[in-house]
């Protein structure tokens, strides 16, 4: 029986059947892996509205948007002046490194500095760009309030407790931090003088 086997014909059939099987197997993997992606209701998670006038000057509020924490701060004029003068010490002064740290409305050098639509109110994703912890808010300058947890030339901002990343009051990452990028900004707009719609 085996003497009469046409091997080239048989090998062709092996490759054809095996190839078709591999394609079918690959196609069958799509629904299984696809099912593990976020479901439609998760993707449709609602936008979040927030009235920023409830945040008093100097205060930080953490709200939840799509299950993620979001920082909203009300920066005083004095705090805004502290955004200047340490440009040399920032990894990405103008938030240009990646898509996630900039927005279309950042169309002037001023807005690139404050990273906000209304200069007072900074709205950013509260996840350290290193490994996702929520940084601690340490707004006052110097070590008076924070001891040696912050550098001696501390300008005020955020300190991530996990691996020691530092951000200034515009959530721009300071040199020497393990975090690669500024805190991300998410789409938002003012739908009235004081209410923001996030998402």
């Amino acid at each position: 029986m085996t003497e009469q086997t046409d091997h080239s014909r048989r090998n062709f059939l092996y490759v054809a059947a095996g190839g078709l099987g591999a394609v079918a197997g690959g196609a069958a993997a799509i629904p299984f892996l696809g099912s593990m992606l976020p479901a439609a209701d998760t993707l449709a998670a609602a936008t979040t509205e927030f009235d920023v006038s409830t945040v008093v000057e100097g205060q930080l509020v953490v709200i939840v948007w799509q299950g993620k924490p979001v920082f909203i701060t009300n920066r005083s004029d004095e705090m805004l002046t502290r955004l200047d003068g340490h440009d040399d010490n920032l990894k990405d002064v103008n938030s240009e490194a990646i898509e996630a740290v900039q927005a279309e409305w950042m169309d002037t050098p001023e807005k690139r500095k404050t990273r906000s639509i209304n200069p007072r109110y900074l709205v950013v994703v509260a996840s350290c760009t290193h490994l996702g912890c929520i940084p601690l808010y340490k707004p006052s300058a110097g070590r008076a309030e924070w001891g040696d947890s912050v550098p001696s030339d501390w300008v005020g901002g955020w300190h991530c407790p996990c691996h020691g990343s530092f951000y200034d009051l515009s959530a721009r990452v300071i040199n020497g931090s393990p975090a690669p990028h500024n805190l991300h900004v998410m789409p938002y707009k003012f739908i009235s003088d004081s209410v923001v719609l996030i998402g």
């Binding site: 799509i30 629904p31 299984f32 696809g34 099912s35 992606l37 479901a39 439609a40 209701d41 998760t42």
Partner: peptide, 13 residues
């Protein structure tokens, strides 16, 4: 019902 309506390919599974 969520598997049937919202989960990707949930109906198929």
């Amino acid at each position: 019902e969520r598997i049937m309506r919202d989960v990707n390919f949930g109906w198929l599974l």
